[in-house]
Simulated scan of single mutants.
Amino acid sequence: MTNSTITPFRLEVSEADLADLHARLDATRWPPPLPGDGWDTGVPTGWLRELAHYWRHEYDWRAAERELNSHPQFTTEIDGQNVHFLHVRSRHENALPLLLTHGWPGSVVEFLDLVGSLTDPAAHGGDPADAFHVVIPSLPGYGLSGPLSEPGWTIARIGAAWAELMRRLGYERYGTQGGDVGGMVSPAVARVAPERVVGVHTNGGPGPIAPFPMPDDERASLTGLERDRVARIEAFMREESGYIAIQSTRPQTLAYGLTDSPVGQLAWIMDKFREWTHPREADPDTVVDKDRLLTNVMLYWLTGTAGSAAYAGYAQEAAWGEVKEISGVPTAALVFAHDVAIRRYAETENRITRWTDVGRGGHFAALEEPDVLLDDVREFFRDLR
């Protein structure tokens, strides 16, 4: 870690890049819809045509760019990898630093609606004692932290990089929060720096999930809620896990299509937003703001990081199956209706001190249920400050 310089960053996409995007959208070669044109066979052609039309003619990238640039952004090199991050300090000096980590197919965009409430709670109807300084990095190989410099960016390595980032920023005590990949990285930071991380908050659970397939005698011991979650894990493995197989084995082959076709990139990401938002039957743009969805896609498109994000997110080699050491750091799980975490399994690798099941909401907590997430984060860290 020889180059520890932290450099201010400002996002400035050229007009030529935007013109290229518009030309590609105009020239899209659309497939004929399959019978029924429904979600069961993938993203419906009719629905995606409407979203692509909105992207081309109504979506305002410059407004999104201004919003991102309204927050201080920086880059630094950690372990040979370029890392982009937002760093927004609270005006309250006693604020607790909080490291927020997104997942796939997400980005720092997930947290934009929470920055104000976290850093300045008094201005948003909250208690100044709940203020946070927030640090929001882009995962290695994702978006503005691309391209990927080398292989081996396991969850543990990202956890170590995030601990180094917080050290460079001068934070001796801090909390971590995240979901999806971020839900695995957040406890990994605590395993690297247990003396510095005061608490780990996850939405969706910190892992691991229930074993698959599950022995009958173990299944018989489950509660009704736990059996439902196991059934949905099994359905996921049967019906939805194809993307993991592709991204973990042939990410470069996939990248050609997603990097060349904006509609291809849009469809790949929207497929997951539809499957993982709640309720599943709703179109994703009725659950999450349409402009937020497109800004998230834009960070993948403009940086050409579909392949490197897939590689970093799922090419974890043997690390996926390793049993992880319990850090001893207090850990919270906020589990929404779509999520499948089960406490007894999470406790094998984490010191769970708070577990909250919520009867609504999906995988993208900060985008779908920001108020619920905000309240739970505040309550969890209140006694850990």
Rank of each mutant, 00 (worst) to 15 (best):
T28M: 12
E195G: 14
V109T: 12
V263P: 01
L384M: 13
T305Q: 00
G362P: 09
A161C: 14
A95V: 00
G179P: 02
E93F: 09
D40C: 10
F9E: 07
G175A: 01
V200R: 01
R91F: 11
N203Y: 11
I155N: 08
E325T: 15
E239Y: 11
L293T: 00
T41C: 04
N203M: 13
G103W: 02
L114Q: 08
H278A: 14
R157S: 05
P140S: 03
A346W: 00
W47Y: 14
M270P: 04
S327P: 09
Q247L: 10
Q265L: 13
E93C: 08
P194I: 02
V13H: 01
R89C: 04
L68K: 04
E67C: 06
T303C: 10
R227P: 08
D383I: 11
G264F: 07
R232S: 10
A318D: 13
F212I: 13
T41P: 01
P251A: 11
G170A: 06
P8V: 03
A319N: 15
M166W: 05
R274N: 08
D17A: 14
H84V: 04
L139F: 06
L373M: 12
D285P: 03
L266A: 12
P44L: 10
L266V: 11
I78W: 11
H124A: 13
A337I: 07
N82H: 13
P147T: 06
V340K: 10
K272E: 06
I6A: 01
E325G: 02
K290I: 13
F9Q: 10
R344I: 01
A319G: 13
W104N: 05
E325Y: 03
F85W: 07
